[in-house]
Amino acid sequence: MSLERWIELAWEVREHAYAPYSQFRVGAVLVGSQGQCFQGCNVENLSFGLTNCAERVALGSAVAAGVREICQVVVVADTEIPISPCGACRQVLAEFGNPEVWLVNRHRSEVFRLEDLLPRAREGILDRRGD
């Protein structure tokens, strides 16, 4: 499957987002190491703190299907500039590799490696090499 198709799937799933409070809809597609494709959209909650981001919804489906390595992430939103995964999503995605992360709006796209968006994600407080 191509990047164009992943972007198309992300826009399609974005339409299913549950965003009654913010009206801010996000779609995501994650691609596993074997080419498996998983879609997710954001699911808001009145408390906002319990809202599930599109990336983590897609990741839950991927993990439930047995995927343990993510190679590509596509995130779409109808914003002026392409949006980036939040810090929580970045950290959770880091458990499953260092994928390319495509940030897409209606006019352009940008691509990063996850480690560029969240350096040292697997080290942090558990890195004891400095002791």
Rank of each mutant, 00 (worst) to 15 (best):
M1R: 09
M1V: 02
M1D: 04
M1H: 11
S2C: 02
S2A: 03
L3N: 07
L3H: 08
E4D: 12
W6L: 12
I7K: 14
I7N: 08
E8C: 09
E8V: 14
L9F: 00
E15T: 06
H16F: 14
H16V: 01
A17C: 01
A19R: 00
P20N: 02
P20G: 02
P20Q: 04
Y21A: 00
Y21L: 00
Y21W: 10
Y21C: 00
Y21H: 03
Q23D: 02
Q23I: 01
F24L: 07
F24D: 01
V31F: 07
Q34D: 14
Q36W: 12
C37S: 06
G40K: 03
V43C: 12
V43G: 08
V43M: 11
S47G: 00
G49V: 09
L50Q: 11
T51W: 00
N52R: 10
C53A: 13
C53I: 05
R56N: 03
R56L: 05
L59K: 10
A62T: 07
A62Y: 09
A65R: 06
V67C: 12
R68D: 15
I70E: 01
I70K: 04
I70D: 01
V73C: 13
V74C: 03
V74G: 01
V75N: 13
V75P: 02
V75G: 04
V76D: 02
T79M: 07
T79F: 04
E80M: 09
I81N: 07
P85D: 09
G87W: 03
A88N: 05
C89M: 06
R90Q: 11
Q91E: 14
Q91F: 12
V92G: 02
V92I: 14
L93C: 05
L93N: 04
L93W: 07
A94L: 09
F96P: 01
G97S: 01
N98K: 05
P99Y: 07
P99H: 04
E100W: 15
V101I: 13
N105W: 09
H107S: 11
S109R: 12
S109D: 15
E110R: 02
E110T: 06
V111H: 09
V111N: 05
V111Y: 10
F112Y: 14
F112P: 04
R113D: 10
E115T: 08
E115R: 13
D116F: 04
D116C: 08
L117I: 06
L118C: 06
R120T: 07
R120I: 05
E123T: 13
I125C: 13
R129Y: 15
G130P: 06
